[in-house]
Design a protein around this nucleic acid. Sequence first.
DNA 1: ATATAAATTTAGGCAAACCTAAAAATAATA
DNA 2: TATTATTTTTAGGTTTGCCTAAATTTATAT
Lengths: 218, 218
Amino acid sequence: MIQTTSEENYLKTIFHHAGLSNNAVTTNDIAASLGTKAASVTEMLKKLSAQKLIRYKKYNGVTLTDSGTKQALLIVRKHRLWEYFLVEKLKFSWDEIHEVAEQLEHIQSETLVERLDTFLEHPRFDPHGDPIPDKKGIIKKSDSQKLIDVTEKKEAIVNLVTDQPELLRYLSKIGISIGSKLKVIEKNSFDQSMLLLINGKSKVHISSSIANNISVQF
Amino acid sequence: MIQTTSEENYLKTIFHHAGLSNNAVTTNDIAASLGTKAASVTEMLKKLSAQKLIRYKKYNGVTLTDSGTKQALLIVRKHRLWEYFLVEKLKFSWDEIHEVAEQLEHIQSETLVERLDTFLEHPRFDPHGDPIPDKKGIIKKSDSQKLIDVTEKKEAIVNLVTDQPELLRYLSKIGISIGSKLKVIEKNSFDQSMLLLINGKSKVHISSSIANNISVQF
DNA sequence: ATATAAATTTAGGCAAACCTAAAAATAATA
DNA sequence: TATTATTTTTAGGTTTGCCTAAATTTATAT
């Protein structure tokens, strides 16, 4: 079941809007994301529907079918593996990779993806911290990671904090608790300390020993 | 000066047919190589001509302009770098790489090519033994390589042999001399010994110490 | 509940890159 | 040099994916 680049982009966009709970996605949202017009979207939705990749009823938005979800996840897999490659091997910076990965994700070759995955030693998260689906399109349950291992720019939710009263007191003072949303703004490669944005509001600098005692999930 | 994938494929095909001496290439030859029809080729030739990538006069075949040649060489560069990557890093075999490299060569990103080149440590020859143009589109004069460094399946011409009478005697006995055409049939990764086809006729097995004392060019 | 606004779909077009069939130019041969 | 054969070009067509403008459906607000 081979798609054109355009079909793949539509599937991916629908997937990103629908989220894992596969909510219905509107024509306009898709058009806005892809920078196309609603009329073009309607046209493509008919094609995808004919291929049973989406469920489409006029004026009603779309949801992905199982088959469509799987296709989308495989594209996401490719995208994220290539991003990992670009950063880890080619030393691209975080903000240069998207455009290139957008192109690489459309290369058609199962063998290529699997060998790339092997070469990269089966990374589980891309450079943004997003999970990489496996070859069956399965995303491992977002189990937690230590904050210290979280990649720059990634948003995460505090999951668990090592039960040390002193630490807990300190964290609550700076506004971090279970459920707090953290965004890693900067990682200092010298001492592994981090600059965080907490709940989209306050910035805080924490040392590696603290980061090492906080677990987060995505 | 960005091309479509199709334009790039036409340029590359013209380049391959024209060779380094830039002979005129016919409409029919291009059509045959690309698996398209002559009428489609004519159409595309007009486009490329308008961009001054080729010199085109009706019924007269085409030649590449300097600008066209440079574009073509940059595509060839990308193709060969990716082939090298596929074989050396992803462990593709020699015969699986072409189709994938055909896709990868069209990824648009100068940065990507240059970082890939750096990552691969500036390889000078692709897995078929063909030279990789540099970022300016220049192919280094095909200077010689040690036979021992020649990649499997590649044909080469004997250039120079270390001046050791004993070696020379042995080589002449097995039919190798300056100007002999050698094809590397097999390289034994254990002891670096090689199985060679000499002048398209006889097969000979040589040890690494001998291969180390023979220079070849392509 | 009805009028207005917003979202979606339909209808008709355009450009790229392909096609077939016919016409024109060039090449080959009696 | 005619005449045939081959190559190349031109003149319409097709498909994909996009567009605008108009029509239709759904949502919102008085």
